[in-house]
Design a protein around this nucleic acid. Structure first.
Lengths: 203, 203
DNA sequence: AATTAATTAAACCAATTAGTTAAACTAAAT
DNA sequence: ATTTAGTTTAACTAATTGGTTTAATTAATT
């Protein structure tokens, strides 16, 4: 008998809120939809998280870490620029394939309220100087063309993120809405990006 | 004496609506804000464009052309892959610098209502086969590495669009919110992208 | 001068939605 | 057995917003 049933209301709410916020953004999300998805009612939702704003911040701050952590992970303890690029691109494409709504969500919310970005200075501060040193070292030893760390970072991010961000457009214009073709394209993508950058950098 | 003053109410509305829709999107835009910006009142706004939806479609369809036209222009009448790349990247970075809100707007609206993309099939149908032929020709004559037209297109778009799309993030993490540094970075960008792709493709 | 079109002001309607409240109920803890 | 925390139902408030209406005003057309 289910005399003692285990509840996970708070988790259920967070899971539901994450899904709804990721899909609709802060303004598009509806508290009623979150409550429905968590299979509770609106009153209880407010009982746990007093306001939409408080719930949103909770979700948002957690998600932000997911975006910037893989970048940090790629930077630490790598001492070769090609290893760094491969690690970065692989980490990033993996994170993105698991959270395809994340980039659009982050971009929208930060555009809507750019100040919010300052809340996470330290936790994810990425050391672009470290990358620049990696580059400079390889340039000096005559292995690669010179390039600025900023451009290289944006190149990698742009090539990884863009096809996710613009999926409906890409799927429609490039693959006649055949999602299997789109997914196949995505699965080739990290290999393609790493190869492209390798050839572009190698002297 | 200003006995006969010239009115351009319709243009004023369209200009105001374009600005507001680009900045806030369909859902975020407020009819009152559009009316205020056009210096008329809400009643007159509805007198010209019966509903928000009708006004939005008017603006949206015009804007879409701005995004896809430069791609088409780059494709026509080019018979060298490097000329194509340079034209494409130059055209695109120019369009973007003039309309920095455009990519985010398009991506959001198409995600919100993917069916709308079908409204503009023919007008902007881009011939990826043409690009593939350009590539194949250069591959056969031993000038470049093989690459798929799809990957190359997304590479160019991603590298051009991403720094615009994620301006607040880039400006903050890479340039400590110094917009002059950000703009300087942007101005180097098309040169950088063309050089990178050229080196990556050249055998 | 008289008619028509463009414009304003202000009140209003209906729908949506975040958030509240109060009363009742149920499961868990003591 | 009683208290406490968790949960539901349902009605409600207040604010926002797209859209309408009506009457009055101003400009353009004839």
């Amino acid at each position: 008998m289910d005399k003692y049933l285990i509840r996970h209301t708070e988790e259920d709410i967070l899971k539901a809120a994450k899904e709804v916020f990721l899909e609709k953004g802060m303004e598009g999300a509806r508290m009623q939809e979150i409550a429905d998805k968590a299979k509770i009612n609106k009153a209880l939702l407010h009982y746990y998280f007093r306001s939409k704003e408080k719930l949103f911040r909770h979700i948002f701050e957690n998600l932000l870490r997911n975006v910037f952590q893989p970048i940090k992970n790629s930077i630490n303890q790598k001492d070769d620029i090609f290893v760094f690029i491969e690690t970065f691109v692989d980490n990033y494409t993996r994170v993105l394939s698991q959270n395809p709504n994340l980039p659009n969500f982050i971009i929208n919310e930060i555009n809507r309220n750019p100040d919010r970005i300052r809340e996470l200075i330290d936790p994810t501060k990425l050391d672009k100087n470290f990358i620049q040193h990696l580059i400079d070292k390889s340039v000096k030893s005559g292995k690669i063309h010179p390039v600025s760390a900023e451009h290289l970072l944006i190149d990698m991010l742009g090539m990884c993120v863009f096809p996710i961000l613009s999926r409906p457009i890409v799927e429609y214009f490039l693959f006649e809405n055949q999602s299997d073709q789109y997914h196949n394209f995505l699965s080739e993508r990290n290999r393609h990006i790493v190869d492209l950058l390798t050839r572009a950098l190698t002297l």
